[in-house]
Computed example of a mutant assay.
Amino acid sequence: MGGRRGSNRKEARTAAAGDRITDLPLELRARIASFLHYGEVVQLSALSWPWRHIHHHAPVVKIYLFDFLHLPDLFFDEEHSVPGLLDEDSILAVRVALGRRAHDGSASKVDTLRLAFSADDPRMRRYAGRIIALADAPQIHVHSPYGGHAVREAWVLDLAPAARRLHVVAIDHVVPTIAGPGAAAL
């Protein structure tokens, strides 16, 4: 019986420790959650009732489209794409979550969008453009890493109206053309 009582105490301590984060104000929990990738923040919303809308309040949204790339030995379009198949259903789920956030009057605005994708892949550029529009963030950080060869193809970043700061790192890429309603505010 003594072992059972000790087990109950341990469970009570574990439950109390887990609730310390849940007991934090929503803004602080959202700031902590924003260290995760946005897909993981959306998954947090299924954790429990107090976490159900955490993805509507994370001030920083990080989306790396490379995380949605599978089967690296296959080519979608050998001439114009990076190797692999994009999990378009998962990308759509992230876009839907961002879209719902944009239309939810009680949601916080996205402060910073951190987006990584291959600028030399037209599929990723298309999704990146849609994500930038949905996030409508004042600060946008775009990273397009070196793809193994210099990218000479022109590419465009269409900025949403809220855009005020843009940081682009695109190694061995042509500089992107900045367009869209947010371009004039830079």
Rank of each mutant, 00 (worst) to 15 (best):
R125E: 07
L113D: 05
L74G: 06
P181M: 01
F75M: 01
H80I: 00
D19C: 03
A150L: 10
L24V: 03
R13S: 14
L74T: 14
A16G: 05
R165N: 13
D121S: 04
D158M: 05
A163E: 06
R95A: 13
H143E: 07
Y146I: 14
L65W: 05
G147T: 01
H103L: 14
I131D: 02
P161N: 07
R31E: 14
D73T: 10
Y38W: 13
H141I: 11
L28V: 15
G105W: 09
V174D: 11
A179G: 04
R126W: 11
G2Y: 14
G39C: 00
L71M: 11
A17G: 09
I32A: 10
G129W: 03
L98S: 01
I91D: 00
S48I: 04
K10D: 09
E153W: 08
E27Y: 00
P50Y: 02
V156L: 12
D121V: 03
A133W: 10
H57D: 07
S90R: 13
I131E: 01
S34R: 06
G99I: 02
R13D: 15
H143G: 10
Y146T: 14
F117R: 00
L69N: 08
L26T: 02
A133N: 06
L47Q: 06
S7F: 09
T22G: 05
R101V: 03
T14C: 04
I91R: 00
P122Q: 05
I131T: 04
A137G: 04
A179T: 04
W49Y: 12
D67M: 08
V168G: 02
R9I: 11
D67C: 05
P59I: 05
G147M: 00
F66S: 08
R29I: 07
H167Y: 13
A128S: 14
H55T: 07
E153D: 10
W51A: 11
F68V: 03
S90P: 02
Q139G: 10
G39V: 01
A58Y: 03
L166S: 07
S81C: 15
V96W: 15
S81M: 01
D136L: 08
R20Y: 07
A97I: 04
I178C: 01
E27M: 02
S48F: 03
A30G: 07
A183Y: 06
I171K: 15
